[in-house]
Design a protein around this nucleic acid. Structure first.
Lengths: 255, 255
DNA sequence: CGGCTCTTTGAGCGCACTCAAACTTCGTGG
DNA sequence: CCACGAAGTTTGAGTGCGCTCAAAGAGCCG
């Protein structure tokens, strides 16, 4: 696994917060002008990184907070013997490295699944000011943390109590819903830039078993994965199969 | 499952925040006088509930926030077909119902495992004031949420990637460490007020299989559970068996 | 072309499950 | 006092889901 560097990018495509296209999505909550003004000073860089790059590594904090702007990433935990659990998948608008709020170094790592771009927020210097002078943003931050907890709770329930096919169906519907809210779904299909190895680590399954279950779902006409693209062939049956779905439809806070 | 009522208790044993014995534990962070003063007004009742009582039910919010004072409780999610995943175990000092911060009703339920007592905080009325006037408490709240996420991440990793015996060992060591910090461990043993059914639902295991694994651990001289009491017979071997343990040793925020 | 990563398939094992039932404990009412 | 039922624990028997091991095929890059 070659380590790739994250690159700085101050020019060109990095938008000002006021014109951030993410904020225009219905998915995210509105911002007051004063909030926006603070965020503009909070943000200190816009960076890009290549697929496979490690954005954050277990045990080492850099005092920054990121907001994913384009692309996919995932947060995971490694066990000493090499086993990996992917804790959640990060999509545009998601916050990375909330633990900077605690001050403790993170107990997990974050890796880019595609080429990505992201905003860098100066957590260590600006968070105290944020909490002191912008209670509405502080509340937003807390709510982001609680949303994340909700997502992990779902994943835990799925992993602890559901069969392989149920997990896959729930995962795909979840990705479908989240991507649809970002305008990244066309005709019931979306880009799925994860290897089956990563998918398996996210679902708590063995890669070989996952592969077989994907085949079965394909043969049943529910789901097709091909060339990094997932196509949900029968949404209704998928929803019937998935024990957990929906419920994340409210507007979400965005930093 | 008989539904039992939670009882109000304004007299006698309910301590003022200033003299709260929990705050004296090294486990929890110190409080400034101003924080303490606010908390005193934040707290509107001290209640008790019987083992088995439901403190919080999926979908219904009462605008309150609780801090568990004595006893055990657990937070869980039910699937439509009755399967249950216990998301985490709550011990004295833990916060219940953080989602009141969001305003959304909770997507999970909370049940008392023993007779318990707990503080009731007037979230819906006082949280805005807290965020506006007490940034240090707001930060504390956020950090509590992030601590919870950390715990669930651990549980997810355990459930997704670890074998039954590893899960049991990690769970027991976790309970051991948390209870020890509260002075509730004597001679490597502690009260474990959970049925095997509940344990199984917490670990993502079948109750019968759990029972057999407990027997095996007992026969290997690692662990003994009897009469609602757990005794860790060989801490060293348990730690060697558990893929995840420790790391929660820092002082924790308390509301 | 070889070397790499990822996907796919086969064969077979075993961990964790289901089904079934005995036993213990405890509270309740006859 | 014992009978009874409810809830929890324990054990046996047998199945199957999801695992490991092994290897072939597919796509990509140097």
């Amino acid at each position: 696994m070659s380590k790739q560097e994250a690159g700085e990018n101050h020019h060109g495509l990095a938008p000002w917060c006021e014109e951030c296209p993410l904020r225009r999505l219905d998915l995210f909550e509105d911002f007051s002008p004063s909030e926006l003004g603070f965020m503009q000073g909070f943000k200190i860089a816009h960076r890009v990184a290549q697929a496979g790059a490690t954005l954050m590594k277990e045990g080492s904090a850099d005092g920054h907070l990121y907001t994913l702007f384009t692309g996919w990433a995932f947060r995971y935990k490694l066990l000493p013997d090499g086993r990996r659990q992917i804790l959640n998948v990060l999509l545009p608008g998601d916050t990375i490295g909330l633990d900077a709020v605690i001050g403790d170094p993170p107990y997990y790592s974050v890796q880019a699944a595609t080429d990505i771009s992201y905003c860098v927020l100066d957590a260590i210097r600006k968070l105290p000011v944020l909490f002191r002078d912008h209670p509405s943003l502080a509340l937003k931050l807390t709510r982001i943390a609680l949303r994340e907890r909700q997502g992990i709770d779902r994943r835990l329930t799925l992993t602890g109590r559901c069969a392989a096919e149920e997990r896959i169906a729930s995962f795909m519907l979840d990705a479908y819903d989240r991507l649809a809210a970002r305008g990244l779904v066309r005709d019931h299909s979306f880009l799925l830039p994860m290897t089956q190895n990563q998918l398996a680590d996210a679902l708590g399954l063995n890669i070989i078993h996952l592969n077989r279950m994907l085949r079965r779902l394909r043969e049943c006409g529910l789901l097709l994965i091909q060339d990094r693209e997932a196509r949900l062939l029968d949404l209704e049956q998928l929803r019937r199969l998935a024990p957990i779905h929906g419920g994340l439809t409210h507007r979400r806070p965005l930093l």
